[in-house]
């Protein structure tokens, strides 16, 4: 498995973890008896995103340490093509997600819902992009 394929797998699972952690945190963070947040949602979101960055960096450093020469090899034409094809699929997913978020905003009209649906659309589009990369690497082209 090439460094870039490993990188796509790592990013996919880290992002999946981030998505689950973010939305589980937003849905189930602790409240007091009067319904006030015991944890600031913004701080919690920043902590989750910080954890995502650390996890990504550490995982990539481990992979680089295992095969440093492979990691230093510049992207070749097949890898660039895979990235472009995956980005195109991700872009369409993002457009559909953003239109869905706008539609939902017209129904609910709450900025908090709009923000989170936009966030969900971005994360899902990114997951689809990375998932497409993984599939294309597995298929060979």
């Amino acid at each position: 498995m090439s460094f870039r394929e490993k990188s796509a797998w790592i990013s996919f699972f880290c992002l999946l973890l981030l998505t689950v952690a973010y939305f589980a945190g937003m849905q189930h963070h602790p409240h007091d008896a009067e319904g006030h947040d015991l944890i600031d949602p913004l701080q919690m979101a920043l902590a989750i995103f910080g954890g995502f960055v650390v996890l990504q960096v550490v995982s990539h450093l481990i992979v680089v340490a295992q095969a440093p020469k492979d990691a230093r090899t510049p992207k070749d034409e097949r890898e660039r093509l895979i990235e472009l094809r995956a980005a195109r699929v991700g872009f369409y997913a993002l457009v559909v997600g953003e239109l869905g978020a706008m539609g939902l905003f017209h129904v609910h009209g709450r900025p908090w819902t709009l923000m989170n649906t936009i966030m969900l659309a971005i994360l899902i589009a990114w997951l689809i992009k990375l998932g497409t990369e993984v599939v294309l690497y597995r298929r060979g082209a």
Binding site: S2, E5, D70, E77, R78, E79, Y137, G140
Partner: peptide, 8 residues
């Protein structure tokens, strides 16, 4: 290119 590309 990478070895994986030659293989493909």
């Amino acid at each position: 290119v990478t070895r994986q590309t030659v293989n493909a």
